[in-house]
Design a protein around this nucleic acid. Structure first.
Lengths: 140, 140
DNA sequence: TTCCATGCAAAGTGTTTGCAATAAT
DNA sequence: ATTATTGCAAACACTTTGCATGGAA
């Protein structure tokens, strides 16, 4: 059974654990976490002051391609990183301050967003992106 | 009553119409159109060879802030531009070749994607982004 | 001891901007 | 004639990469 602790999962995959990587993993812990690379860097520097931004990017990219972290391009110029891949969810973004919250699928009624899961937001738009393989790519 | 022709709507708003802008508007015509700025540039150069990429970007940004075109950040590094704002819709993206299709809301059953609207894709993921104002920003 | 991860700095993208020349109204 | 738009090139922000050093296993 897979542990719930990111670092253990990574170690199990033969990841070489370094202080820098531990710091990045630590920054990416919790719910409603959607940090930019810059923000991860800032948080990680609080633990390992000499960590470079390049290392943060390298680490984030690995985590994403391992499927341990999701990369979100919600808007703006930079990607956000969401560690909460174990429990599928969607996102609620404030048009003004850009605050991002997780919304859980059970909270969806049809395509609206019911009580609790609306988190008090005044909704004015929904964007849905379906992913998959197109007919051509399914053959190949 | 608002015309269906983009250029007429723009003129009605007091837009100064130039050959370059006409070319951009023309490139952004049709359904299932989700071009990158580079692609719009290429298409527009077919009509006005001397149009610069900067002008394409300037024009696209105006169209977006006028609400006449939607900017999509589906994945990859660059934005895509979708002129089909009159008829709200969602998107279907191929993980392999990145083909993008419009899917119409009526085609959604719950959060799946029914027959016709599945366009033959083998689905393996859905991302939903809700937009609105958070409680703090609603007050302000 | 082996090999991988790190930091740095340079290079790369995609996008934006300042400015003088030009064209739409 | 007036004022906005254009093209160019430089500037920008974010991200990636090459390479020598250092550290994890």
């Amino acid at each position: 059974m897979p542990t719930d602790v990111l670092l253990d999962r990574l170690r199990a995959r033969g990841w070489r654990v370094t202080p820098q990587r531990r710091a990045v993993a630590q920054a990416l812990t919790g719910e409603h976490v959607h940090l930019t690379a810059e923000q991860v860097h800032a948080a990680a520097r609080g633990i390992v002051p000499e960590i470079s931004l390049a290392t943060v990017y390298n680490t984030l990219n690995e985590l994403v391609s391992m499927g341990e972290v999701a990369e979100l391009r919600l808007d703006g110029s930079s990607s956000r990183y969401d560690p909460n891949v174990g429990h599928p969810h969607h996102h609620l973004v404030c048009r003004s301050c850009r605050a991002v919250l997780d919304v859980h699928p059970e909270g969806l009624d049809a395509l609206g967003l019911g009580g609790e899961e609306r988190h008090g937001y005044a909704l004015d738009g929904v964007e849905i992106v379906f992913r998959g393989l197109c007919p051509d790519c399914t053959v190949a």
